[in-house]
Design a protein around this nucleic acid. Structure first.
Lengths: 233, 233
DNA sequence: AATGTTTTTATGTACGTACATAATAGCCTG
DNA sequence: CAGGCTATTATGTACGTACATAAAAACATT
């Protein structure tokens, strides 16, 4: 049958995708092993490996040693979101970015915060509230707590011109963290800051980052109604 | 100085992360080239390549041919969300999954739908509305349009027991798509279905998938208040 | 100084061999 | 037959060489 040869891992990947899409290899099916595919495709096993590994990363294939490679029965859609600095996000929309510091104080946080950040309840943290603007209209409110034990330099920064969002990126390295997305109703204060009616549905991003075992910062971003976070599948 | 040798790509990756974290290589800095690092680490260049490529994929490094590799100045946080089948999501919470078909009809969609799906405005599509339950309480409403030109078998499926969410996964392959996350206020109907008060903030996932140049399905999922989509960074 | 051409360089990838490792399947033993 | 040991097998990874390719840098030309 004289198959065309696939000389690079991308073409191998494409061919595998084609076979899955055409149902030649149906969801749940075991596909031939790397060595056999290498022979069939006329390339090295390492090339096949690269292609299949990449497909496994994106959730299309399930691979297990000895058990072999099979087409994912229920392809979990993996959506990779790029959470950029807000200024970039605004500027990419072709709008003018603006920033406004609302509040900056060193106080003891509510227990919900000290609990999540695993700081002592009596410990004062730096609390920064700010507004991000797009073409002079409110875009998002930022409500942030900074662990000044971990980032003492933050105490010297006013955050009047530069947002904590950006300052921390440069000055506070973190090892890991987590992020959550949800919908919340605008409180009276938030509604006023964003210039929307109270109770509006706001898109919320909550982020908590850690440096080893110590929390660095915890932030909630609330976006004006209409905001949508999107990505390709 | 006799550095320990790094014999595998993961340890190389860790060492690179350490150097970035310790600011030995600061954001924006150009780091040594692969060949030099290979000598320093006592491993093959391909091993260094694997480690650096992986870090570039996760946004920690920026690489460009000839220009070299530099530490990302503004590490765009890449959050990878796994969008599972709703039944799985519910069951993983340890709850009992339930499903309820609300409406199923073949009608001409509003122009907003035919426009997005690039079907002729006069073309009838299959409209399916359903409710997903967790321990017998509403969890999410699904509002879906299916392009029956692309998936004619859907016309034969009642969707009374099996959700369109799962049926399509098995029967309607797609080549690409996009997904968006937002916050919306509950309309009167949605509020009733989800048993929440009108105007509540609901988390929305909108998805549109394509098979080559034809749209397969467009769906909006609205989750009950309190829902949060989360992932590690 | 503006423009086009060539060289250089760092990353990107293919290949084939070798060995590591996880997980299954088969075997053995009490 | 249960329980544990062993062999088998498919993926995972390391290595070194070779060549491809993008992009910057250097150079030449007008």
């Amino acid at each position: 049958m004289n198959m065309p040869t696939f000389r690079n891992w991308r073409s191998v990947q494409e061919e595998v995708r084609r076979r899955i899409h055409s149902r030649k290899w149906a969801p749940g099916d075991l596909i031939p092993n790397e060595a056999d595919l290498a022979i069939e495709f006329g390339c090295a096993r390492s090339t096949v490996n690269r292609a299949l590994r990449s497909l496994a990363d994106s959730g299309v294939l399930d691979r297990k040693r000895k058990a072999g490679t099979r087409v994912a029965a229920e392809p979990v859609a993996k959506a990779t979101l790029d959470i950029a600095v807000i200024r970039h996000e605004v500027e990419e929309h072709g709008a003018k970015y603006g920033y406004l510091l609302i509040k900056r104080s060193q106080t003891t946080p509510p227990v919900s915060v000290s609990g999540a950040m695993k700081t002592r309840a009596s410990e004062a943290l730096l609390h920064v509230q700010a507004l991000h603007l797009s073409d002079d209209t409110p875009y998002a409110v930022e409500d942030r707590w900074i662990n000044t034990n971990v980032v003492p330099e933050a105490k010297l920064e006013s955050f009047e011109k530069l947002s904590a969002n950006e300052w921390l990126m440069k000055h506070a390295p973190y090892t890991h963290g987590d992020i959550g997305f949800s919908a919340v109703q605008a409180t009276a204060e938030h509604a006023e800051m964003l210039n929307v009616s109270q109770g509006s549905a706001l898109f919320a991003i909550d982020r908590l980052t850690w440096d080893s075992s110590a929390s660095v910062t915890m932030v909630r971003l609330l976006f004006t109604p209409g905001y949508q976070l999107r990505t390709a599948l």
